[in-house]
Design a protein around this nucleic acid. Structure first.
Lengths: 322, 322
DNA sequence: AGCACCTTAACGTTGCGTCACTGTCA
DNA sequence: ATGACAGTGACGCAACGTTAAGGTGC
């Protein structure tokens, strides 16, 4: 088979086929009398093997070595390629968020681009105090959000939240979108910022049904209204920020006149599990005024767990003195 | 400032500084008497501008042009860069999943790698019939899953699901993980495969609380048991596969003796919304035996919407004849 | 005299595209 | 003779690293 035919067959330029020959990667076994390269079926198979390995991102040199001695195992090289590819992707992702920041900032001159990039660099600085300063400088909101999602330092994150909260409600949609980030840390930073944003109430109500419990918890604590009740009760049972959840339920019971409903909901979880769960529910019942909670506490005095029983007794006594 | 000092200051190799000079990107304004490059503060600023733009992925040539005439707006170039970067990321992602397939298949020789890559190429083929054939050939499960998540052709997807379902329960964890994919199509392929997998019941029960309604729906229909009831009722109300959901509720009512509870749940949604919602709930009530559903249908005969009323009348009449 | 610094110039890298110039065959 | 092939050889690309051979200044 001549080089042109093979080129069309394999969709490789003749230039590359000659190159493969030159570097000894795929050399036709024979030459015709006129000096033309004559590829045998064997050579064609070899070429397709080479192309297969190229789809894995191997260099031509690595392919030659791999096909040369079959006893070098592919695992090490594959692991290396995976790592390198992952690193490249990470770099490209960072680049992409930068570029998007620039586009969304809507700058029109290269001067502005330079200023913005300088800001972005400060926000990416390894020095927290520089990041903090950059957060508090004025600028477009998009990079602030990106920076927040990856921020580890609590002080800097606080500054970024503050800056975002005064950036207007244009940041609400991307902030809500960040709740579904695959990165847990980003989700938690997003909800922490969202609870401080004006106008976020509908989004928080949505977030009550989020699959990430930490997101639900922050939303429930921030809302603190009737919609949040199921999650707040669940938090008490789970022991996730249960003290705050119990306080929120207590406030709700007093302000919205929901004491008996809330007490019933807490009581409904009592038969659920361990002593620890009943202990937390008992503490939460203490925050609820009204007869239903009192009855529940009275019943808990007979709880099999001595700690629960003692707590209930103490809380009842305190109730009577107040 | 001499070149070495600037190199340390800006963390750029002297080689690159000379290169910038050679291509006219950053040329020191002066030379010292001995011919040494002497960078002025102005030159240093220029250098930092260049480095800023490099962080956006601009080529040296593009930087030179951008800094040369300030009247070419950055938007077009930035958009171009965004697109190119996105394309590169997509390519790298595809490469990465390929590499991971190879690693997870645990092949030990380049021969096996070649066979596997050939299979992967078939699974990526633009020709559906080739993909179908590749799906039915035997091979490791991981690439089948990756192929399924991106598959558009329903026949090929069916073949892939069949192949996956006989691949053992090692595919369950990645399949469950795919339910949280940011790509909606991937999530739906994942749940469609999951409902056919042996041993997937716990995962399906989890999926009932998924944020994607289509995932919840498939899981609820596949489970068809008491846990699925809230979602099934919701599906009837929403009009999402409501006929199947109603049938599932009907089966459940007959087999698990839940007729009156299910009827009550459907009735509870009646005051919710539009005529269409009440119409679907009416149809669903027809699937439920027992007195509660009958009472509800009787009441619906007086529904303000004539279509709902007529349907209820018809269904009641049919009930009496059977 | 030694050492740190500077200069220009050139070659190698990777995976090709694109010339130029020449030869072969139906 | 024409036109479609084939051959070799070489340059260019982008962003550098490296090396060689030599000059400058303390």
């Amino acid at each position: 088979m001549l080089i042109g035919e093979l080129s069309r067959l394999a969709n490789i330029s003749t230039r590359m086929l000659r190159h493969y020959d030159a570097i000894g990667l795929v050399s036709p076994r024979q030459r015709a009398a006129n000096g033309y390269r004559d590829y045998t079926p064997e050579d064609v198979r070899r070429l397709f093997q080479v192309e297969s390995l190229r789809t894995l991102g191997l260099s031509l040199q690595a392919i030659r070595e791999s096909l040369a001695d079959a006893d070098v195992p592919p695992t090490a090289l594959v692991d290396e390629l995976i790592e390198a590819t992952g690193a490249r992707i990470a770099r490209e992702q960072a680049l992409l968020t930068r570029l998007r920041s620039v586009r969304e900032s809507g700058v029109t001159s290269w001067r502005d681009v330079l200023d913005l990039v300088a800001l972005l660099q400060e926000l990416d600085s390894p020095d927290p105090s520089r990041r903090q300063r950059a957060a508090l400088a004025e600028g477009p909101a998009a990079p602030l959000l990106d920076a927040l999602l990856g921020e580890d330092d609590p002080n800097v994150a606080g500054a970024l939240r503050w800056a975002l909260s005064r950036a207007g409600d244009g940041v609400l949609p991307p902030l809500v979108a960040a709740l579904d980030s695959p990165d847990a840390h980003a989700r938690h930073q997003a909800i922490a910022a969202l609870v401080r944003m004006p106008g976020a109430e509908p989004a928080l109500r949505e977030a009550l049904r989020h699959s990430d419990p930490r997101v639900r918890e922050r939303a429930a604590l921030a809302l603190g209204d009737h919609d949040a009740v199921p999650e707040l009760v669940d938090m008490v049972a789970r022991g996730a920020d249960d003290v705050s959840a119990a306080e929120a339920l207590g406030r709700l019971a007093r302000t919205d006149d929901l004491a008996d409903e809330l007490a019933d909901r807490l009581v409904a979880r009592l038969d659920e599990g361990t002593d620890a769960v009943r202990g937390r529910l008992t503490q939460a019942l203490a925050e609820i005024p009204g007869p239903a909670a009192r009855r529940a506490l009275t019943a808990l005095v007979d709880d099999p767990d001595p700690a629960v029983s003692a707590t209930a007794r103490y809380l009842l006594a305190r109730r009577d003195t107040v």
